[in-house]
Design a protein around this nucleic acid. Structure first.
Lengths: 129, 129, 129, 129
DNA sequence: GTGGTCTAGACCACG
DNA sequence: GTGGTCTAGACCACT
């Protein structure tokens, strides 16, 4: 389920958080779903249990998952409310990067072309994701 | 000239590199200009000389500045050639965050509106800067 | 493993970089191999950790090694691609010193004899190494 | 007469020494010739007098020039003896670089080809120098 | 004065 | 344990 790139500079725990977030946004993980236990995921990914624990703590902090004592971690029922926040922050990131690009001398046309490339027709889009 | 945010998670030396890059892109720093000496900038920013040195080394590595023995650091005459690369990488960054945003469920309209905000008419832009 | 000459004019960190490069070229260090940790090498060579760090940063910049967060420095899997470049630059260096030698009045015979000495038969070569 | 590259990493005083050496080797500067005074050369090259002085001291140390009190610096009459040494050291440098190249995996053929390029026919050689 | 290298020792995030 | 960043202060070569 998760794909860890040990050579990447982004921390392993953050890779797990990001991928979980992506699964939530795309609906692959629905509220109420049980997350794998720390131990099992640790074995699956060949990653230190501490690292998994850290990822789960971060997910809990963001309101994505809720621990059920004695049962495990579950996708929070209120996860939908958080996803709006996530999208808003993504938009903020985009805005920041655009401002940087503009300061670097990128024209509106450059950016529009880039947007075009990303939001192209559905048929071509499907295999990209 | 430089603005250092000591609380930021991005390293001080990288902040200096980025800001220098921005000055170059906006034309504030022209080829042949002398950079502040390691020691003087160190005092100005209340930052250790080693940290400044690291920033300058990175700038030299990227081809933005050249040391003149016993004289100081100077903006490279060939800096123009590097800036194209910088712009290209900025565009790549934009593309990457756009893809992320799209995966997060942002619509093309959302993004277009964001682009509009950044590249809006001059009259409205003025008070932003 | 490494031999540092503290009296040499070539910086310690550069000696480490060069020797590592030599180990890579000769196949002593294969992709995936773990480099000694900054601290341990620092103790081994009686050199400040910062100096080792600088050497490792340079090696990373050249694409020879990759840091794995929390694990250590590892020889890059793509190191083979870089070695071709290294050989090319070595050849350039040779060309440069040959030109200098020629300008200094060295004859082709002088140089050929020198090449002979370096690339002599295996039996004679053995005791040189 | 001298060509100084301020942007070069090799020290200015060393550039002067090297070029003088080259002039001696090629016979442009003959024994007994008077070198320009420190002051005049300093003005000519827009270089600090201390730097010229350092170059001259180095040239004197190597036995290339002799100061004549009240007259100036003159190319030493015994310069011929030194030039043999210079050629010998050049050959040593070549040998060292060849060894490095061999360790880097360069074949004899690679090197021979390089030698060929440098020592090609006279007609083609002329415009290279 | 300049940049470049180095030591000594600290703190941080990551696993 | 790992690498990465930073401070404090030193020495060097070059101009």
């Amino acid at each position: 389920m998760f794909q860890i790139d040990a050579m990447s500079r982004v921390p392993v725990y953050e890779q797990i958080v990001e991928q979980t977030e992506r699964f939530l946004l795309s609906g692959v993980l629905a509220p109420g779903t049980k997350m794998p236990s720390v131990r099992s995921l640790s074995l699956d990914l060949s990653v230190n249990p501490n690292t998994i624990q850290k990822a789960y703590s971060e997910l809990e902090r963001r309101g994505f998952v809720k621990p059920v004592p004695g049962k495990g971690m579950f996708i929070s029922e209120q996860v939908g409310e958080c996803l709006g926040e996530v999208r808003k922050s993504k938009l903020e990131t985009i805005r920041a990067v655009l401002v940087q690009g503009k300061q670097a001398g990128l024209t509106r046309a450059d950016v529009e072309q880039c947007v075009d490339q990303v939001y192209r027709k559905y048929e071509e889009k499907r295999d990209e994701v």
